[in-house]
Write a protein that binds this DNA or RNA. Structure first.
Length: 281
DNA sequence: AGCGCATGACAAT
DNA sequence: TTGTCCTGCGCTA
């Protein structure tokens, strides 16, 4: 679930549900009791996504920092929160629900967080340190792709590894990286320094396009119109996580463009997928 | 019931 | 490079 687009959606959603009012925080599982106590009663000023990091900025200079890791999840709902199902690390509710115009039922919300890699309260310098260790995020207006290219252009490391390194580019995960490299016709093993400036500009622009679309759709779709199931008369991808893709998790299946069986390899213990015909240099 | 795996990131070796 | 952490699900049995 969680690549950058998911976090950006959550940030917007949480501002919509909770900003401008005091929140009540609790930790049913007990592991975040201290942080929950510090947040309770403070007003959520704003939310922010930076790469895969979700920040809730509270009045009084405290920031809730959440990183979902590989399988963290956030759910929310209206009204009375349910009995916590499974391991809920953090639960937020509206401390002071916003009354509905016209005297309808109160606008009350809850949010549950489970399975995060990080759930902690940060001070302003700690937030600054977090930002400082992240590369440009294609989903942010303040992103500076030059900074990423400065790293890439002088590295012998494979492009896929560089793009997954959050200090080079923030918010990109395995699906975006795998698919963007396919769309660019670049092998994942290409050394960073072999990518010229124009190639980087195209790759960055494509990441912006794919990730922006994913924020809008709530899922990752990377297949161009002419290669969609309807256009090609092929079966749509059936995957719990949805989204039409070219190579991600399609080992051995025919490439939508050239029919070559998709390759699979390993990179730092994670699966890599590519088309040996479409992606060569 | 148990195993392995997953869109992630660390520290230790 | 390997191990560790966090949780849930789908596949085997």
């Amino acid at each position: 679930m969680p690549e950058g687009h998911t976090i950006h959606r959550l940030a917007a959603r949480h501002a919509e549900l909770f900003a401008g009012r005091p929140v009540h925080a609790s930790s049913p599982q007990g592991r975040f009791a201290d942080g929950a106590a510090r947040l309770t009663g403070t007003v959520l000023d704003s939310t922010e996504a930076y790469g895969k990091h979700l920040l809730h900025h509270h009045a009084g200079e405290l920031t809730l920092h959440v990183h979902l890791g590989l399988y963290g999840k956030v759910t929310d709902g209206v009204g009375e929160p349910p009995e916590p199902v499974g391991q809920v690390r953090l639960r937020l509710t509206n401390d002071r629900p916003r009354p509905r115009r016209g005297g309808g039922p109160e606008d009350r919300h809850w949010l549950d967080l489970r399975g995060p890699t990080a759930c902690e309260v940060l001070t302003p310098p700690e937030v600054a340190a977090l930002r400082a260790r992240l590369g440009p995020d294609p989903l942010r207006a303040d992103a500076d792709p030059d900074r990423a290219y400065a790293r890439i252009s002088r590295s012998a490391t494979p492009l896929a590894a560089l793009l997954l390194d959050q200090s080079v580019v923030a918010g990109t995960g395995l699906i975006f990286v795998t698919e963007a490299l396919f769309r660019a016709g670049l092998p994942p093993t290409l050394p960073g320094r072999a990518l010229d400036r124009a190639g980087w500009d195209r790759l960055w622009a494509d990441l912006v396009t794919l990730m922006t679309l994913a924020v809008r759709q709530g899922r990752i779709d990377t297949v161009r119109d002419e290669h969609l199931p309807e256009a090609m008369g092929r079966e749509p991808r059936v995957d719990r996580h949805g989204g039409e893709v070219y190579v991600y998790r399609r080992p051995g299946a025919p490439c939508h463009v050239c029919g070559t069986a998709i390759s699979r390899g390993e990179l730092a213990g994670r699966n890599l997928y590519w088309c040996a015909t479409c992606q060569r240099r």
